[in-house]
């Protein structure tokens, strides 16, 4: 049992590392979403100067801004959950260490209260695992939603390119902006793909 518990805790410490990596991935997506938001704000201002010719572009860059805001909100939610996961996973490591030591004490001496203490820690551990499982599946839903939103984002970015082409000879700056949009959104997709994989564990 002692060995079993210690083998478990080495699994948990890998889990902890995985959750920490996950948090880094989320931060990266949130950062890119922030870049899109800034770009969208600038592009909207720029397009407004073009007047009627660039109206379509204004609408689309506003949509991109909304998309990036949505993505950031999703990443914030994911970030909060992953912070919870990290703290629960570190608590789990502590719990398993204690359980291991109590179990070892019980190998030499059997005592009712020692068994009760072990039982209580085991119950706590099960509750903890349930809680972590719930957070984990909530995170999977968030990432799936973010992925869908991002696919939609690629469509908007492509439309922005078309709209930039319609802005006439003065549209070079808008074309630059729309290319940037595509690049950023395309960079996010593999990040989200990685998050999806990481959450599958």
């Amino acid at each position: 049992m002692g060995c079993h518990v210690s083998a478990m805790s080495s699994v948990q410490s890998h889990e902890l590392q995985r959750f920490i990596m996950l948090r880094e991935g989320i931060k990266e997506v949130a950062f890119r979403a922030f870049q899109i938001k800034l770009l969208a704000l600038n592009a909207t201002l720029l397009a407004k100067r073009f007047g009627e010719q660039a109206r379509g572009f204004v609408v689309i860059s506003t949509e991109l801004r909304d998309f990036s805001q949505l993505l950031r909100t999703q990443m914030e939610g994911l970030g909060e959950n992953s912070t919870k996961l990290v703290s629960l996973a570190s608590y789990e490591l502590k719990l398993l260490r204690q359980l291991n030591l109590l179990t070892r004490a019980g190998q030499h001496t059997s005592h009712d209260r020692l068994q009760n203490a072990q039982g209580q820690l085991q119950t706590q551990h099960q509750q903890l695992q349930r809680q972590m499982g719930q957070i984990h599946s909530a995170m999977q839903t968030w990432v799936d939603d973010a992925y869908q939103a991002c696919l939609f984002g690629t469509v908007i970015a492509r439309t922005a390119k078309i709209e930039a082409a319609h802005a006439g000879p003065l549209g070079a700056a808008l074309a630059d902006a729309s290319n940037q949009f595509s690049n950023y959104v395309e960079q996010i997709l593999p990040n989200l793909e990685q998050l999806k994989q990481a959450l599958k564990g």
């Binding site: 204690q98 109590l102 004490a105």
Partner: peptide, 10 residues
């Protein structure tokens, strides 16, 4: 220390 609990307890 925590690590010697089993042996102290026993």
């Amino acid at each position: 220390g925590m690590e010697i609990f089993p042996t102290v307890f026993s």
